[in-house]
């Protein structure tokens, strides 16, 4: 073994050690105020549920986990697959996925638009995106309701112009939920997209265009692969929180359909079944975590292929 190799190895080790120090503050904060306490939830998931919420400490039971997947029919006592939980999971995933796609379709051009403004104007446009979000979520949701309710801005405008003669019921529909979610999560898509688009060298695109690539080709083959990290970040930031969202679905959708967030909240609240709530949330976390890892791997592969 040569000395040079030793030095390189030592430098690599030092680099990795430094990297651990550098990430320590974030890791410690998250451990203390997010992950650490979650061990409580893991414990709770295998304890006996308390009569009125909470758990009976140090009495263990697998009931919480059993109820995630199976249910005992309350009428004939047969055990079957918990299809209620599955259909709620499916509805939440569907909604989160559509929200992600919609925010991507709207957010990409917006981020692109901001990134192509003159340099000193960009931060200004960025601020303009976030300003509505200085307003509290609940107030914002009520404001959306003012626009879309039967007597709201949109319906009144449409009726005045004679386009419709009956108000369109938008409030309390799935469409309203989608509108609200898109609204609420748009900046979570735009900001990361912008962060990776902003440093994109648009001369590359111009060069490609000079070589007779049409604009959709330029977009697909050059711009999109280059901003893939931003798309990944934005999609995660939109998809994951919207899976557990519950204020917007309740206020705009009318709360007639449970989402995952509401289902879990029900167990910790009125349902008084903390072990089931814990087990459900651990399952959800595991699913999200796994799909996230798969997604990130796949995305970085695409990136490698194009890059």
């Amino acid at each position: 073994m040569t000395q040079a190799q030793d030095i390189i190895r030592a430098a690599a080790r030092r680099d990795i050690r430094n990297r651990w120090w550098l990430s320590a503050p974030a890791l410690v904060i998250i451990f203390l105020a997010a992950i650490g306490p979650l061990f409580v939830v893991v414990l709770y998931s295998v304890m006996v549920k308390g009569d009125y919420g909470d758990v009976k400490y140090w009495q263990f039971s697998g009931q919480g986990w059993f109820e995630v997947l199976f249910e005992r029919d309350m009428f004939d006592n047969t055990v079957s697959f918990a299809d209620a939980h599955l259909s709620i999971l499916w509805r939440s995933v569907k909604l989160a996925a559509i929200t992600t796609i919609v925010t991507l379709i709207l957010g990409f051009p917006t981020a692109y638009f901001i990134a192509t403004r003159p340099r000193h104007r960009r931060d200004l446009w960025l601020f303009l995106i976030t300003i509505p979000f200085w307003t509290n979520l609940l107030i914002r949701t009520f404001a959306i309701q003012e626009v879309f309710r039967n007597e709201g801005l949109l319906n009144v405008a449409l009726m005045r112009t004679g386009l419709i003669d009956q108000p369109i019921q938008i409030m309390f529909t799935d469409f309203a939920i989608l509108l609200g979610m898109g609204y609420v999560y748009l900046p979570l898509m735009v900001l990361p997209l912008y962060a990776s688009l902003e440093k994109f060298d648009f001369r590359l695109a111009e060069a490609a265009a000079d070589l007779y690539a049409n604009s959709s080709r330029v977009l697909r083959r050059i711009i999109v692969p280059m901003v893939m990290p931003g798309i990944v970040a934005g999609s995660i930031l939109v998809f994951v929180p919207s899976l557990g969202a519950y204020v917007t679905p309740r206020l705009l959708g009318g709360g007639k359909n449970l989402m995952l967030g509401n289902l879990i909240e029900l167990q910790f609240g009125q349902g008084r079944n903390w072990p089931l709530g814990s087990a459900l949330s651990i399952s959800l976390t595991a699913i999200v975590m796994l799909s996230l890892l798969v997604y990130v791997r796949a995305a970085s592969k695409t990136e490698a292929r194009h890059g």
């Binding site: 998250i30 997010a34 939830v41 995660i236 929180p241 959800l284 996230l292």
Partner: peptide, 16 residues
């Protein structure tokens, strides 16, 4: 680890 707070529904982190 860093992205974990995103993965867990808020109500669960809240209870913990």
């Amino acid at each position: 680890f860093i992205n974990q707070p995103l993965m867990v529904p808020e109500i669960v982190t809240a209870v913990a």
